[in-house]
Design a protein around this nucleic acid. Structure first.
Lengths: 204, 204
DNA sequence: GTCTATAGCCAGATAGAC
DNA sequence: GTCTATCTGGCTATAGAC
């Protein structure tokens, strides 16, 4: 691992590309804009990453590997469903607040090219529901939570956590709130969402 | 209202444009592809719609006015929260199954250009939460539902209904289901989602 | 109204000097 | 490794014949 004086060019490019691709998508991004942001010129982009597609893929894989393993981390640890839901909600929303473009970037690009995710499936840390599924079935049988399929519960959790970021403009318009109030809504959801889920599934 | 022999060109163009724009987005769509799909040539597109931007806007407004008023319709009618949630879930999922590209199209393009929604806000039928808000507050006070803000409940409802369509590739990969099983998951959600919400907010 | 041909531009990619 | 200059292709848009 060599350490350049300020920051090596390759890294600067990736950082700039992340920025542009995540806000504009593959189709909307311009190589020139990425070069400008990185403080170099277009030729350098090709020197390091061959072409736009490969540069994009580097960014995408990077983004994906930032989001996906967190699912696993919480889902597979040793705690109750209730604790998992609480922890996941708090962690995930906190994380996305810091990287608000990420979910939309991934969703948008996966819809453009669904095969993309197949390449990820082999990776270490790709979300796997097996453990979670067993746990849900067990807690249902034990009676600590109401009958629900692990898949549906998982979709509920993802939806409630991620959707508000993906549909931000829509939600701001419908609920008629400004930027500040929207931020507060999101902040509240860090606990609100977990309580909502637990209320629904918990047996008393 | 004139009725052309098969279908007038303007309409054919709009139909083709809808198809291409909704699956590829503004940036990904090609005028040539739209012309091909409509069975005419590029010059005609410009003859009828002046340029790509205007053609796109025609498609977008059309799509938006298909999705948005349904929110209002259910939210403002005269029935209990519980009935509204049930009806909305069933209606919305049923509708989106028939137009699966719609939500993602709208969300994607609004993120590309958030100001776009401001133009819609004046339209008749733009979702308005006033009535719903009063009703939620009233039912909370009465004790038929647990304390919750109308905005958060509204976001929950939207998220649970729409997210599975927007994030289809992601969900298919994580839950490890094929196309057929995914369809079944969605089908189940027509009642599953409503029950999940009601379970959570209903006082016993 | 509908077509063909083409103008004009812009973006990705490369050549080649330093 | 980094730059400038340029090629090449593709895309929106228009001109102009029918």
């Amino acid at each position: 691992m060599k350490r350049a004086k300020d920051e090596n060019t390759e890294e600067r490019i990736l950082e700039a590309a992340k920025n542009i691709f995540q806000s504009k998508g593959m189709n909307g991004a311009r190589m020139q804009e990425i070069a400008d942001k990185a403080g170099i010129n277009k030729a350098m982009l090709h020197y390091y990453y061959r072409n736009k597609q490969l540069l994009f893929e580097a960014v995408f894989k990077n983004a994906f590997s930032l989001l996906a393993p967190q699912l696993n981390a919480v889902l597979n640890e040793d705690s109750s469903i209730e604790e998992k839901v609480k922890k996941f909600t708090l962690n995930y929303i906190t994380f996305i607040v810091k990287h608000p473009y990420l979910p939309n970037f991934i969703i948008q690009e996966l819809n453009r090219n669904p095969d993309f995710i197949l390449q990820m499936k082999n990776n270490e840390g790709f979300p796997n529901l097996d453990i979670f599924k067993k746990q849900v079935d067990k807690e249902v049988k034990k009676g600590t939570i109401k009958p629900i399929s692990a898949e549906q519960l998982f979709i509920h959790i993802l939806a409630l956590n991620i959707f508000p970021f993906v549909a931000k403009p829509l939600i701001m318009a419908f609920t008629n709130v400004d930027e500040k109030a929207y931020k507060q809504l999101i902040e509240d959801r860090k606990t609100e969402v977990a309580n909502f889920i637990i209320n629904s599934i918990k047996n008393i």
